[in-house]
C-alpha cells in the first residue's frame, strides 16, 4: 500500500491541515480553556486539583475534539472534488482506498498535533503531580478524535458538495455530543425506568463520546455523578473497549472506501 504517492499525499495532508486557520483557532481555544481549567483547579483549597481539572478537561475534550475531527475530515474527498483536483489525484498511482487511508493518516497526524497542543496547554499550567494524569488523557482523546475524524472522512466521500458535508458534520456533532445523552435521559424518564440499565449501558457505549466519557470519568473516579443518578455504568473490558474504538475508526473508512469504489463520476 505504501508507495511514493501515498507518502507524498500523507505529508501534504498533514502540512495543509496543521496550517488550516480553523484548526489553529480551535486548538488555541482548547489550549486556553484547558490552561484556564488547570489554573482554576490549582487555586482551589482543600481539594485534589486533578479531581476537578481531570473531569473538566474530559468535558472540554468531548466538546472540542469531535468538532476539530469533523472539521478536519468533512472535506477530505468532497473538497478535492469541488476544487476539481480529485480526478488528477486518482489518475496517480494510488487506489481509491489508499487515497482515503493516506488522507485519514495525514489528518490523524494533524489531529494529534491539535490535541497535544490543547491538552499540553492544560498540562503546562497544572500542578506538577497531576501532569501525569493529564498526560494519560491524550491517548484516549486521540482515539475519540480518530472516531470522529473517520466519520468526517466518510461524510466527505458520501456528500456531493462541501456545504452538504458541513451540514451533516454539524448534525453529527450535535447528535453525538449533546442530543445522544439527552435522548437517553429522556428515554429513561418517558419509560419511567422500564428500560433496563443494561440497554442504557450498551447505548452509551454505542456513542464514541459516551464511551470516552465513561472511560475517562472512571479513570478520574468521577463516575459518582452517574451513580448518584441511579445509572451504574460498568466499564467494559479493555479488549471490548479496543474493539469498539477500532470499529469506530475503521467502519466509517470501510463505508467511505465502498462509496468511492462505486462512484463513477468525480466532477
Amino acid at each position: 500500500m505504501i508507495g511514493p504517492v501515498f507518502n507524498a499525499l500523507l505529508i501534504h495532508e498533514y502540512l495543509e491541515r496543521v496550517r488550516d486557520r480553523w484548526i489553529i483557532l480551535i486548538s488555541i481555544l482548547f489550549a486556553a480553556l484547558g490552561a484556564g481549567v488547570s489554573l482554576y483547579a490549582q487555586n482551589l483549597d482543600g481539594v485534589d486539583s486533578i479531581q476537578i481539572a481531570g473531569p473538566s478537561l474530559v468535558t472540554l475534550a468531548t466538546l472540542f475534539v469531535p468538532l476539530v475531527a469533523l472539521i478536519l475530515g468533512h472535506d477530505a474527498i468532497v473538497g478535492e472534488r469541488e476544487r476539481n483536483t480529485l480526478p488528477l489525484l486518482l489518475s496517480l498511482p494510488i487506489s481509491r482506498t489508499e487515497l482515503i487511508v493516506a488522507k485519514m493518516l495525514g489528518r490523524t497526524a494533524a489531529l494529534c498535533t491539535s490535541i497535544t497542543i490543547g491538552l499540553g496547554g492544560a498540562m503546562l499550567l497544572s500542578a506538577p503531580d497531576g501532569r501525569g494524569q493529564i498526560l494519560a488523557l491524550i491517548g484516549p482523546t486521540i482515539l475519540l478524535g480518530i472516531a470522529f475524524l473517520s466519520m468526517g472522512v466518510a461524510i466527505s466521500a458520501i456528500a456531493r458538495r462541501v456545504t452538504i458535508a458541513v451540514n451533516i458534520a454539524v448534525v453529527l456533532w450535535f447528535t453525538f455530543v449533546f442530543f445522544f445523552d439527552l435522548g437517553l435521559l429522556q428515554l429513561m424518564v418517558i419509560t419511567e425506568g422500564a428500560v433496563s440499565n443494561e440497554l442504557i449501558h450498551y447505548l452509551v457505549l454505542a456513542n464514541p463520546a459516551g464511551l470516552y466519557r465513561l472511560e475517562m470519568l472512571t479513570y478520574y473516579n468521577a463516575d459518582m455523578f452517574t451513580n448518584e443518578m441511579g445509572i451504574s455504568l460498568a466499564m467494559p473490558s479493555q479488549t471490548i473497549r479496543l474493539l469498539l474504538w477500532s470499529l469506530w475508526a475503521i467502519m466509517p473508512l470501510v463505508i467511505a472506501s465502498w462509496v468511492m469504489q462505486k462512484r463513477q463520476s468525480f466532477r
Binding site: 501534504h12 495543509e16 476544487r83 476539481n84 483536483t85 480526478p87 488528477l88 489518475s91 496517480l92 498511482p93 494510488i94
Partner: peptide, 14 residues
C-alpha cells in the same frame, strides 16, 4: 497508472 499522465479539463491544484 505509473505510465500515465493526465491533464483534466480546467485543471486545478491544492
Amino acid at each position: 497508472k505509473k505510465n500515465v499522465a493526465y491533464l483534466p479539463e480546467a485543471v486545478n491544484f491544492s
